[in-house]
Write a protein that binds this DNA or RNA. Sequence first.
DNA 1: CGGACCGTTGATTCAGTTCAAGTCATGTGG
DNA 2: CCACATGACTTGAACTGAATCAACGGTCCG
Lengths: 245, 245
Amino acid sequence: MDLQLPPTLRQLRVACSQCNLMELCLPVGLSEEDVARIEALIGNRRKLKRHQALYEVRSPFQALYAIRAGSFKTTIVLEDGREQVTGFQMTGELLGLDGISTGQHVVSAIALEDSEVCVIEYTRLEALAREIQGLQAQFHKVLSREIVREQSVMMLLGTMRAEERLAAFLLNLAQRFAARGFSGTEFRLRMTREEIGSYLGLKLETVSRTLSHFQEEGLIEVQHKNIRLRDRERLRGLIQAPLSH
Amino acid sequence: MDLQLPPTLRQLRVACSQCNLMELCLPVGLSEEDVARIEALIGNRRKLKRHQALYEVRSPFQALYAIRAGSFKTTIVLEDGREQVTGFQMTGELLGLDGISTGQHVVSAIALEDSEVCVIEYTRLEALAREIQGLQAQFHKVLSREIVREQSVMMLLGTMRAEERLAAFLLNLAQRFAARGFSGTEFRLRMTREEIGSYLGLKLETVSRTLSHFQEEGLIEVQHKNIRLRDRERLRGLIQAPLSH
DNA sequence: CGGACCGTTGATTCAGTTCAAGTCATGTGG
DNA sequence: CCACATGACTTGAACTGAATCAACGGTCCG
């Protein structure tokens, strides 16, 4: 995920107040003064190479991570080894919320490309949230938003057919790219067909076939990992009005 | 869900400190003094008849609800009318977390039987959480636990076969009944086959067939809504070791 | 440049859905 | 308090969407 800034500028963005993700991240709707205090909270950064784990299942929970650059997947594993992707995260989104409950992570977070995160030590976040009402409110909203997101995935997995799932997935990605100032009609998938399938409860062959099918129908153009949405309305229609029954 | 207390006693339990759900609810691990302050927070109660909505989709979010007696389902609806159950809640569990994100509820909460909830006004909860660290910590854990629960439902819907889903569902119910001091081997389902199916991404016929199949196998006894677990270990084994592949 | 991974496409199989018919339970109004 | 209607559940038979198995082409990376 290119930040579309020259490298020199990239070096300079060291603080939340200068981060172009500010409106996506925690310090939203806060006074300058409060943002300054949050900057102090957000200590160091961490860089990760593609396929590297930010944290693993069962590792102790200590911090949340705001994605500064790159993207991640979170995966959960069953005793018998079956694995499922529970989410894809991109810049400005928060990772680690699953660890608060038990003090141990229940998913692993893996970088889909070379990435960088801001480390937010959790005890310090809680302390600051007690002092800055706006931060508390924002944090609660982030937690609740994750609950809501997962509920819509449950809907997707529970009641949608393969085509609808893929359509919903593509539209969601597009919307998130657009929210970050990238094109919402042309983008590059960071994940494999298998990872998409795992997230959507489908096999990779079904993902591949369905994308091909969308292409035949003129809904999208697929070239490897590059996607272009050609008929967003019909794509949206797929979700709301299933073919039959 | 009978509280197993004579009616007279039931009248008397008016405060958190005397509520037998205390260890399941918000005031966990707090000093007596703090519990007293939380009692003040928890204003009135609300009684609901079977099938009555505690709140509906799109209704404004103002409060969380702790279930004092009875049980609920939460459902999300698609534009085309398709509906899915996203969770079943029983005594001591919190309802309404979905509303924090946008200020509007994204699910409806419907009583499965005559029920009663404690109303927790959200702005007051946030204010108190800023003052009482233990309450803040507990609240965050509750939010995170819901995120984790939904992730395991995603796993269930995404990668499990019908038998595994049902087995996981029954074991989860059993464990929650047991945590509340009821029998974990013999209990009554509060929801219909259709509601179970909706939650598990199955049709009601499949739920019915699978339960019958479990019975033939000697895993459970089913009589209408009454379930008895006869071989918990083999039931658990179903989840961890799928038949083939 | 070679090998591993990733993706596409086809043929076949199968788990779960759909359609259907009938039983049983519940509760409501006369 | 009974009668009847309605909703809940079960079971069977046929159907189907997605999985599985398989073979092959493309691409990326060391």
